[in-house]
Design a protein around this nucleic acid. Structure first.
Lengths: 104, 104
DNA sequence: AATATAGTCAACTACTAAGTTGACTATATC
DNA sequence: GATATAGTCAACTTAGTAGTTGACTATATT
């Protein structure tokens, strides 16, 4: 599976994006990451695994606790891929604006 | 399903990213979009449907032909979401660089 | 009118994803 | 040593995804 496949797929889930948002506030044990969600800890653990496989989270075991840490680097590639289309969303907005103007 | 869920999920597949790349060269009939892929046209059609549901492609029927057109606008939101983490991937790269330097 | 082309639709297979529960392991704490 | 806490693992259910094929619809072409 391509790296971008994993990263984009990992980001395509609200729970996982929320986990990343939480981790952007700092490292946290899995139990703390799981706490806000109406979901079993095992369920959250699976989401963390998806993020970890995509390289977006690093899990470190200290004692009986697993600390989760955000690793933003892979997002850079995803953002770079998106930016190759930046011209298009600008152009298309302009094209739409001109079209509206023509109608007016 | 949240818009970002659909957009990121749509982008999490190499075939679909390739379709978008093709459409960035200009509007094309479905048959032409499907041609380079080692997959049935129905299969490609399903991918186009996913892209269309995410708002990334607009399909227009003219005669018996369905023309597919790139709509980049939803990528803007995805890019904006990613950019909120831009500071992290820069910081983390810097942290890594400093760490390497400490070791040297 | 006959035929070819563009594409959909329904039905099916195989696989993956999201979530659960219950039992288990490993580490802390009293 | 007994018990509580952090987390995994395996097994399972449910639902969704990726892909196929064959029959069908609609539009062009000759």
């Amino acid at each position: 599976m391509h790296e971008l496949d994993q990263v984009f797929t990992a980001l395509g889930d609200g729970t996982r994006r929320a986990i990343l948002a939480r981790l952007s506030l700092g490292e946290a044990p899995l139990s703390e990451v799981a706490e806000p969600f109406d979901m079993s800890q095992t369920g959250v653990s699976k989401h963390v695994r998806v993020l970890s496989d995509a390289g977006l989270v690093q899990v470190t075991k200290r004692g009986r606790t697993r600390y989760c840490r955000l690793v933003a680097a892979p997002m850079k590639d995803a953002a770079a891929w998106l930016e190759t289309y930046q011209g298009f969303w600008n152009d298309q907005f302009q094209a739409l604006a001109e079209h509206v103007e023509r109608d007016a």
